[in-house]
């Protein structure tokens, strides 16, 4: 593939292709099988990567960078350990995989959900709308925004912050989710304990492993920490290696 084709494809994916460039690209794809093959390949990669997200580095940078020799030795040791682990040990899921399998939609327990339409009219429309969005996990992104708005507008309702945190977690926005859930864990009420579990997930996603361990442990120690007990234990196992 020549440089011009490379340039045109780069412009295309960066959304910088002009109409003239587009005509040139189409002409190339029609007449150059190598360019057409490369185009197909990049389209496949694009489809696959559009389902992916940037992730935190495998290990948080706990120490300053070491000198090169140390790094080489450490890399060799890590490789050997990895080989042994791969061959002889059962595979432990990665943190991201563990979060994906541990996260579940927290049911909407708002009382107005069960009320008749007349009673529901006493609840502000923006609150009802936010929870309608929350009830559909496909709408987490919009729900997170709407719940964030009502959580700030109605600070007397810490539960809104909790659902805001869960929705943010559903969009894998871990930093913001941890922030929202942390506030709920400091409040009193029925959402404090489940918030500990979801906070642990958010902190795991943000690479804040020691804090995540602490949150899961607090959840397990609490007498009300029942529904997610097994999953919290599994997360602790995954985090033990971090």
């Amino acid at each position: 593939m020549d440089n011009r084709t490379e340039t045109l494809l780069e412009l295309y994916y960066a959304n910088e292709l002009s109409e003239t460039d587009a005509v040139e690209l189409r002409h190339l794809l029609d007449n150059d099988p190598e360019a057409a093959a490369e185009w197909k390949w990049q389209q496949q990669i694009a489809t696959a990567t559009r389902q992916m997200k940037l992730e935190a580095p495998a290990a948080a940078p706990k120490q300053p960078l070491r000198i090169l020799i140390w790094s080489s030795l450490a890399a060799a040791a890590a490789l050997a350990a990895w080989a042994v682990a791969t061959i002889f040990m059962p595979q432990q899921p990665t943190v991201q995989e563990a979060i994906a399998s541990s996260f579940e939609h927290y049911p909407n327990r708002m009382s107005f959900k069960a009320l008749d339409p007349t009673a529901a009219a006493e609840v502000p429309a923006d609150v009802i709308r936010a929870f309608q969005l929350y009830d559909d996990p496909a709408q987490y992104r919009a729900a997170a925004e709407a719940l964030g708005t009502i959580a700030s507008k109605y600070p007397d309702h810490p539960e809104y912050g909790f659902y805001h945190g869960v929705a943010l977690l559903g969009t894998q926005n871990y930093l913001a989710a941890a922030d929202a859930l942390q506030k709920t864990t400091l409040s009193d009420g029925p959402y404090r304990v489940p918030a500990l579990y979801f906070l642990g997930l958010a902190q795991s996603g943000a690479g804040r492993y020691p804090e995540a361990r602490q949150s899961f442990e607090s959840y397990l120690k609490d007498k009300d920490g029942i529904p997610y007990r097994k999953k919290a234990g599994e997360m602790l196992k995954v985090l033990a290696e971090k």
């Binding site: 780069e10 412009l11 994916y13 960066a14 959304n15 910088e16 990049q42 990669i45 694009a46 990567t49 559009r50 992916m52 997200k53 940037l54 992730e55």
Partner: peptide, 16 residues
């Protein structure tokens, strides 16, 4: 991994 995501999902140019 990050290079491909930034290119195809986020739409960044090589310079960006």
């Amino acid at each position: 991994r990050s290079l491909l995501i930034l290119t195809y999902k986020e739409g960044l140019s090589a310079q960006e």
